[in-house]
């Protein structure tokens, strides 16, 4: 199979105080797909993203972005952290947060200027948040916070997007908007790796999936690996509960 690999994770083990959080993960992510990472709580989903981004020390293994170490490919990667990981009472505006997407390209000391501002405004427009540009971030709803983070990622104009639970606690309208955005990204050849919680929407929103529970259970196109057996192997006996759960209510 001669397909260029956007992300290649091999033999990745991550440990916290000599207790493994991820064991020997191999993961090949081809370019231009939307991949969901699913698994129970404590399966190491967020850890996988953070370790791939070099935010956590790696006990063994390696991560390659288009064939090279992450450090050399930073400009090609964008990270959307969990919405709850920051203090939304921080004194700053939506536009200002989105402009942070430019900081990597700006490098040290240089401040964002008119060009960066235009890029941020365009990204805000794309996620339907133009009118909120000057809004203080504490006044945003959960969905608007998530759109702000996505706009910041768009500003980075990356090839690969690591997203940590982009659908967590967002309203139905935002959920649809994010799905549209993901499809647009895929259409322009970008790759998305997203931690996802809602099993029901995996086939609808994503085309590839990785099932994770400390080790990699399965990874591949959704119609091949998103099977009852694999889910049971990932979630244990609890999967029947999950699959019979009603579809998430629109908030």
């Amino acid at each position: 199979m001669e397909q260029s690999l956007a992300i290649q994770i091999s033999d990745l083990t991550v440990a916290y105080q000599e207790k493994a959080v991820l064991w020997d993960i191999d993961l090949d992510v081809p370019q231009g797909i939307l991949m969901a990472i699913v698994g129970p709580n404590g399966a190491g989903k967020t850890t996988l993203l953070k370790a791939a981004l070099g935010l956590l020390p790696i006990a063994a293994g390696q991560v390659a972005i288009f064939g090279k170490p992450y450090k050399e490919q930073r400009g090609l990667v964008s990270y959307v952290p969990q919405r709850g990981s920051v203090d939304w009472d921080f004194p700053t505006s939506v536009l200002d947060v989105v402009m942070m997407g430019n900081y990597g390209k700006l490098g040290w000391v240089r401040r964002p200027g008119a060009a960066e501002r235009r890029a941020a405004e365009a990204a805000l427009d794309k996620v339907g948040m133009s009118e909120y540009a000057q809004r203080q971030i504490s006044q945003l709803s959960g969905g608007q916070q998530q759109r702000t983070f996505l706009a910041r990622a768009l500003v980075q104009d990356a090839q690969i997007y690591f997203m940590d639970e982009p659908f967590q606690g967002v309203d139905a309208t935002t959920e649809r908007a994010i799905v549209e955005l993901l499809k647009e990204l895929r259409a322009s050849g970008k790759t998305v790796l997203a931690v996802h919680h809602d099993l029901q929407t995996v086939p609808e929103y994503f085309d590839w999936v990785t099932l994770l529970n400390i080790r990699r259970i399965a990874s591949g196109p959704v119609d091949e690996v998103f099977t009852e057996d694999n889910l049971r192997a990932t979630y244990g006996g609890r999967v029947s509960l999950l699959s019979s759960a009603p579809r998430k209510e629109a908030a």
Binding site: D11, T13, A15, A20, W23, D24, A59, A60
Partner: peptide
């Protein structure tokens, strides 16, 4: 110990 387990799993 951890490295040995890692090797076994690998």
């Amino acid at each position: 110990e951890f490295a040995q387990t890692m090797l076994a799993i690998h």
